Simulated assay, not measured.
Amino acid sequence: MSDWPDVDLHIVTGKGGTGKSTVAAALALALASHGKQVLLCEVEGRQGIARMFDVAPLPYEERPLASGHGSDGTAGGEVFALAIDPESALLEYLAMYYRLGRAGKALDKFGVVDFATTIAPGVRDVLLTGKVYEAVNRNRRTKNARHYDAVVLDAPPTGRIAQFLNVNDELAGLAKVGPIKNQADTVMTLLRSERTAIHLVTVLEEMPVQETSDGIAELRSIGLPVGGVVVNLTRPQALDASAREAALAGALPATTVRADLEQAGLPTDDALVEALLAEGRDHAERRRLEDTQRELVAEIGVPTYELPRLADGIDLGGLYELAARLREQAMA
């Protein structure tokens, strides 16, 4: 069973460099593995989804991306992708609510769209989140539109996530009435509901863990629903507790290391043995730091999931591997 059975919108954020886009993609594949139709969205214009899945840059159009793999190896649902940009979202908004059609495209040519979203960044975020809202709230009766069981949003980083999602406050001094304000109110209803979960990605280092803790506190202070914390890029547990203590104390036996090298048919010179002992000590020190940060993550008091650092980097196979890990831990 998933920890988030009633969530339709999964928002993934995290400090830059923690791998939030990778986690968002893996989560989308994990949800699809249960037979769900999933939309994976990005809003930062980086085309990160296209690079991860090795496809052409995404247009402002929902495109099939990958199929989910069930736990028994059978095919699951599908993952679709959408790169949302504010200019295209505004043109769609004008066409839907003001029926401007070609006139809206003319505005784009004159740079009015870019001007509007530059002088009023709150409007930009309303447009971006408004498109996500529209995708989440489709149903099977929506004409000429694909229905999704879940939407995963690769959101801006932790430092901007509260501002990005708290669109009502961003518009407070700009629009007190009118369709833009109404859309912001509607979007906030979804974002503050149990249908939404905001997941934060971190690594086991001091600054990302602190930023994650601060981000959760800020989200809670404005009434937004916090989901889980994904601890990404964890290292293998290469030493057991006793070996780690010995490494930290500089007491790993050189004779044992030399015997193991000999058994493997490798050189046993002093320089290599000393280098391996030093590497073991560095690993033990890193593990001690990570364990300290892991305890701090646990103190936050939300469900926590862990994903390993993949030796071969991130490709489609790696994303499927991470998706399976999330499914095993009941995040999806």
Rank of each mutant, 00 (worst) to 15 (best):
V132Q: 01
S71K: 10
E306K: 00
P253Y: 13
A120C: 09
E285F: 08
H69Q: 15
D315L: 05
L174H: 07
G70F: 07
I198E: 00
D85R: 09
L94A: 06
D3S: 08
R146D: 11
E218A: 10
R146P: 03
Y93D: 00
L29F: 04
L128K: 00
D240C: 15
P208T: 05
V132S: 05
L90I: 10
R294S: 10
E62K: 14
R327M: 11
A150M: 06
G68M: 03
Y320T: 13
V7R: 02
M96W: 15
E44R: 06
A106W: 14
T118I: 07
P308I: 04
E211G: 05
G317Y: 09
M188E: 01
S221C: 09
A311I: 09
R102F: 10
K105S: 10
A298I: 07
V226A: 09
Y98E: 15
T117K: 00
N166T: 02
L266M: 13
G76I: 06
D291S: 15
M52N: 10
A32I: 04
R220S: 12
A251E: 12
K20A: 07
L9Q: 04
G178N: 09
D154F: 06
Y60R: 06
A259K: 12
Y93T: 01
V7N: 04
D270A: 14
S33Q: 06
D154A: 12
I11N: 02
A175E: 00
E274D: 15
Q237V: 14
P308C: 05
L248V: 00
V203W: 04
D260G: 12
L107K: 01
Q293N: 15
I222S: 02
V231R: 01
L252H: 05
A197V: 11
G228Q: 06
D214K: 13
A298N: 12
V230G: 00
G159L: 10
